[in-house]
Design a binder for these strands. Structure first.
Lengths: 196, 196
DNA sequence: CAACGTTAATGAACAGTGTTCAATAATGGT
DNA sequence: ACCATTATTGAACACTGTTCATTAACGTTG
């Protein structure tokens, strides 16, 4: 029997994901087509489908790497006070998104993923929330820090989601970073007021 | 010279928009195709393009009507205290979206609209924010009520945007309505604490 | 080394998509 | 009755994701 050869299989897969990122950043979601992707790595559409189950799978892999990158940045946040830490986390999230608008956009708009999400996906998100819950817990709120962290994340997400599709200015002239700061400060204020 | 006849032109346009809504609700954004729309109103794709400049224009018209409907619901909110009013506004917004997930989803995901948005679009959104700013102003915040209203809307939007694409449960098990309530209460708490 | 079995790459093909446009049909005014 | 104007049609174009038989390349085995 002959063994699989897979000579530059992994390398090609890596190049393909990189090319997908580039296509997204340069031309938005519609620019990420099977043929454009094939041309970018000098092959044919058929080969793309040999590496990935579908174009959705390509997008999911780009998403995965983005989540991993974000997690790394989040882990590099080491601040003393809970307040500074929460502000730094918000800044990381917002600036990460501003740097990768189109990838982030595709993250939310991508074709509906069938059925359940992969475990690593859920675990990654769970980890991010845990890292927000930690400084929140340090503020000694009355309620569950985890639930408050989720709420804070959603507030910032509302800002980021609109900024990613370049429609934030339909609602406000305020800058994404300022808005994110305001959301963090408000959460802290509410906790200190003994309301949460 | 012969005059334009436009006999049931407007009627057909109306039917088309209704059909578009139905297609969206039943099958999501991908179900809204020129041919499906044509078949739904018993004509051909060409005729659709006689009524609308593009499929984007159809989507924009659906959006417009959704915004008008939302404005009507918002105007029907008549509560005494600012707090009750803000809570009622959040409820209207959330339940409106839950009833029209797919239309609302298309609202944010739709193909990038070229250049500037129409004036009625901006005016409609502006009116909505003004209706939030009013009860906020009644709470006598230190800062600009308008800016706070924008921030509150964004918080609720973060919840709604994720719920519309059925991905809210990636982040939390909390219900959209509860989350919206929490956002409103937190804003009120922060204002009463003299922080905003 | 030659032959085999396995694997990967290819590119044509299929069923869709939005959109355009010449040809056709229908109408209201003269 | 005729004609200018308009609306409708449906074929066509350039795309899209996706599939799959064919072809080419390789590692292992006899």
């Amino acid at each position: 029997m002959a063994r699989p050869r897979r000579y530059d299989h992994d390398a090609l897969r890596g190049q393909t994901v990189e090319a997908a990122k580039r296509l997204l950043e340069e031309g938005g979601p519609t620019a990420l087509t099977a043929r454009a992707l094939a041309k970018a790595v000098r092959t044919t559409p058929g080969t793309i489908y040999n590496l990935f189950d579908s174009m959705s799978a390509v997008l999911q892999e780009v998403n995965r790497q983005a989540l991993v990158d974000l997690a790394m940045l989040v882990d590099s946040v080491r601040d003393t006070s809970p307040r500074d830490r929460l502000l730094a986390l918000a800044e990381v999230y917002v600036s990460f998104m501003l740097d990768r608008r189109e990838v982030w956009r595709a993250f939310f708009e991508g074709p509906r993923i069938t059925g359940a999400f992969p475990d690593w996906y859920l675990a990654q998100i769970d980890g991010l929330i845990a890292r927000i819950a930690q400084p929140v817990a340090a503020l000694k709120p009355k309620g569950d820090p985890r639930l408050l962290a989720e709420q804070l994340l959603l507030s910032v997400h509302g800002i980021v989601a609109l900024a990613a599709i370049e429609r934030l200015d339909l609602i406000t002239k305020q800058k994404p970073m300022d808005l994110a700061h305001a959301a963090v400060e408000r959460m802290i204020t509410a906790i200190n007021a003994g309301a949460e």
